[in-house]
Amino acid sequence: MQVETARPVGRHLLEVRDLFVEFHTRDGEAKVINGVSYHLDPGETLAVLGESGSGKSVTAQAIMGILDMPPARIPSGQILYNGEDLLAMPEEKRRAIRGSEISMIFQDALSALNPVFSVGWQISETLRVRTGMSKADALKRAAELMDLVKIPAAKARIKDYPHQFSGGMRQRVMIAMALAMDPKVLIADEPTTALDVTVQAQIMDLLADLRRDLNMGMILITHDLGVVADVADRIAVMYAGRIIEHADVHAIYKQPAHPYTEGLISSIPRLNSKGQELATIKGLPPNLMRLPSGCKYHPRCPYMQQPICTDVVPPALDLGGGRTSACHFAKEMLDGQLHR
């Protein structure tokens, strides 16, 4: 893909290359991931942004190897970890990497804790299963991890049950579990959507500190453009199972190079957008059973031009500086020369 030729720097910590995922459903094949490519280096935060159903979580599940297959199928694509393809390596090796070096905080984390076991037990079990640590050592490490994620009086709370923790605290516990194996890659799937702004700010701070201190690469999945602007280094915007724009965070907010990104950014109410009608993206998210021809965004795009947009799938155009956009008119858009 274009992303690669633009970055001759060799291999990345993690790289998804032209990934496709389909789900077999009663009504036919749902083409959920349609050629996703993105990469991650140590110590950086890549935000994956996109509306509900665009495929953010499914891509992450493919990386983690936790897709149910069937109904899911990966017809093609690569997931390279330090240059080695997770999809092609022997099962045992793959499991070792996924169990320890790549870790994920799940979208529905708040319900992921088991209510009948103490929090400390749940963290230490993760450790025992993965490393064969002794029970005493695992409990000690669990307390350290709870301390690392700033749970006050961690040692004393290790025997507490999930219901004795607030939402923010439970999210910290989930982060502690994800960190149990000192991962190199942390995938955080909507880690703060269920939390209040003040607690959200605490958790995002915590993740930023951990990423820096442990030199992890972090993939932050979200649809909150505010959170992204606060913490991300780079952004990959997803639409209908494909990265349609990929850029440095500052560049993308200054001047989007894809009409969908522009639509997203302009529909956020800002603290000072008082009295104006909010910009909207017309129409509906695409039906994955019957994806539109050509550019998947064309039925909603204010700049759509026939026949090129309806007939030709736009390639990811290299715009320089690691920036790509899958729009036929990306260059014009970037130069401010595209008009409705």
Partner: peptide
Amino acid sequence: AVPVPDPDARAHRDVIRL
């Protein structure tokens, strides 16, 4: 604590941490 959709504002923001 409200995240501002402007990455350039990051440096100037003065978030009160509760």
